[in-house]
Amino acid sequence: MKLRGDRHGRTSYEHPGSYEPAGRRSVGYSCAHGHTFEVPLASDVDAPAVWDCRQHGTEATILHEPEHEQKHAKPARTHWDMLLERRSIPELEDLLAERLRLLRG
Results as ranks from 00 to 15, higher is better:
P16A: 03
P21D: 13
H79P: 00
R87D: 11
R101Y: 03
A73Y: 11
V39W: 02
E14P: 00
E91L: 00
G57M: 05
E85C: 06
S88I: 00
I62W: 01
R7M: 13
Y29G: 01
E59H: 03
P75K: 06
E91Q: 13
E38D: 12
S30A: 13
G9H: 07
D44T: 10
E98I: 05
E65C: 07
V45W: 04
L95I: 09
G5H: 14
S18H: 06
P21Q: 07
P75V: 08
A49R: 11
S18C: 08
W80D: 13
G17F: 07
A73K: 14
R24G: 06
R101F: 01
G28R: 12
P21R: 12
W80N: 09
R104E: 15
H72G: 02
E93L: 07
T11D: 11
R101L: 07
R24A: 14
T78N: 08
L83S: 08
E93C: 07
R7Y: 09
P48Q: 02
R10I: 11
S18G: 06
P40Y: 02
M82F: 11
A97K: 08
E20S: 15
E67L: 10
R104S: 14
L100I: 09
D81Q: 09
S26G: 11
E69V: 06
E98C: 08
R101M: 05
F37Y: 10
E59T: 06
L102M: 10
H64T: 12
C31M: 01
L41H: 04
T36Y: 09
R24V: 15
G5R: 14
K71M: 11
T11Q: 12
E67R: 07
D6I: 15
T61R: 12
L100T: 07
C31E: 03
Y19D: 10
P48R: 04
E85I: 06
K74V: 09
T78V: 08
R104V: 06
A97H: 10
L95C: 08
A76T: 10
I62G: 04
L41K: 00
P75T: 07
